[in-house]
Write a protein that binds this DNA or RNA. Structure first.
Length: 270
DNA sequence: CGCTACCTGGGT
DNA sequence: ACCCAGGTAGCG
C-alpha cells in the first residue's frame, strides 16, 4: 500500500523513464468514478501530449503535460503505476492504460478501486483536489520543529489523528505515523497541546528520519519497473503486535485510533 | 473534530 | 462466510 515513500519512489521512476515521452492512445478500462473528466474526454485530452515533469504533493502524483495540463494520480490504499511493454498481458485490476511512444505502457492499477486520477489545467486541478489546503510537506526544505509546532500545538485532537491529517502535515501515512511516534517515544493517544517544544523537536526529527529511510529503502512495495522495495520488513512497531519492542522488550500493543490500526509500545511510548 | 462510506482481493 | 486493508471526502 502507498504512503509517501512509495509515492515518492514512483515519482522518481516517472522522472527517469516517462518524463520526456509522449502519450498516444489511452484506454479507460474501469468505472468512470475513477476519473475526472469522464473517460471519453479524459482519453481525448491526453492523446498526443508529452510528459514534461512528475512531482508529488502529499500523496498525489502530479504530471505536467504539454498544453498546460496537469494529470493527477492518487493510489489511495492499493493503487499503483507500472511501466511495462505493451505486449504484456493486462491484469484484471487495470484501471487505465496510457500507451507511450516507444512501445511501452504506463498502467494504472488498483485491486480495490479507490484510486483516482484527474486531468485539468493546473488551476482547476488544484481547486478540485484542494491542493492549497494541504499542510506543509514533512520532506520539504525548511520543515522543522517550529513548523510542526505551529501546525499541531494549538489543535485539540488526538496526536496520531492530527499527524495523519494531510491538511495539518502532508507526508505521513498510518505506518509511518506509528513508526515516527515510536521513534520519538510518544504515546499516539496523547493530545498535541500537551507536547513540550523539546518533544515536538524529537517528533519532527523522527518523522523526517522515518520518511527518508523509507525512501532510501525504496518503499514497501514495487516500483514503476516492478522491483520490490526493501522497507516492508524494516519496522519497529507496525504490524508487530505481541512482538517485543526493540527498545525495551515489552510486547507491542495494537489498538484503534480514529478507526485506524495503531501499533505502539505501552511501556516506552509516553 | 470524529465517524462512516467508498470497494474488492486476500487472509482467517 | 466473514472481516479487514498503509486513504480520503463528506457528513453530523
Amino acid at each position: 500500500m502507498a504512503e509517501v515513500p512509495e509515492v515518492e519512489i514512483i515519482v522518481r521512476d516517472l522522472c527517469e523513464a516517462v518524463v520526456g515521452r509522449a502519450i498516444g492512445a489511452v484506454d479507460v478500462l474501469l468505472p468512470a468514478s475513477v476519473l475526472f473528466p469522464p473517460p471519453t474526454e479524459y482519453a481525448a485530452l491526453l492523446a498526443g501530449r508529452a510528459v514534461l515533469d512528475a512531482d508529488r504533493r502529499a500523496k498525489y502524483i502530479l504530471m505536467s503535460l504539454t498544453g498546460d495540463l496537469l494529470l493527477s494520480v492518487h493510489f489511495m490504499l492499493w493503487g499503483t503505476l507500472k511501466l511495462v511493454p505493451s505486449a504484456q498481458a493486462v491484469a484484471a485490476e487495470t484501471l487505465v492504460i496510457y500507451h507511450l511512444d516507444g512501445g511501452d505502457d504506463l498502467r494504472f492499477l488498483d485491486k480495490l478501486g479507490y484510486a483516482r486520477t484527474a486531468l485539468a489545467d493546473p488551476i482547476t486541478l488544484a481547486q478540485r483536489l484542494d491542493l492549497d489546503s494541504l499542510g506543509p510537506e514533512a520532506l520539504e526544505e525548511g520543515f522543522n520543529a517550529e513548523m510542526l509546532a505551529r501546525q499541531i500545538s494549538h489543535r485539540r485532537g488526538v496526536l496520531k489523528t492530527l499527524l495523519l491529517n494531510q491538511r495539518v502535515l502532508a507526508g505521513l501515512g498510518n505506518r509511518d505515523a506509528d513508526e515516527s511516534l515510536w521513534q520519538a517515544g510518544l504515546d499516539p493517544r496523547r493530545t498535541a497541546t500537551s507536547l513540550s517544544s523539546e518533544v515536538i523537536e524529537r517528533l519532527a526529527d523522527s518523522i523526517v528520519r522515518v520518511l527518508n529511510e523509507g525512501i532510501a529503502l525504496r518503499g514497501t512495495q514495487r516500483d514503476l519497473f516492478g522491483r520490490l522495495g526493501r522497507a516492508l520488513h524494516r519496522r519497529d512497531v507496525f504490524e508487530r503486535t505481541g512482538e517485543p519492542c526493540p527498545r525495551c522488550g515489552t510486547p507491542i500493543t495494537r489498538t484503534r485510533i480514529g478507526s485506524r490500526n495503531t501499533h505502539f509500545c505501552p511501556n516506552c511510548q509516553r
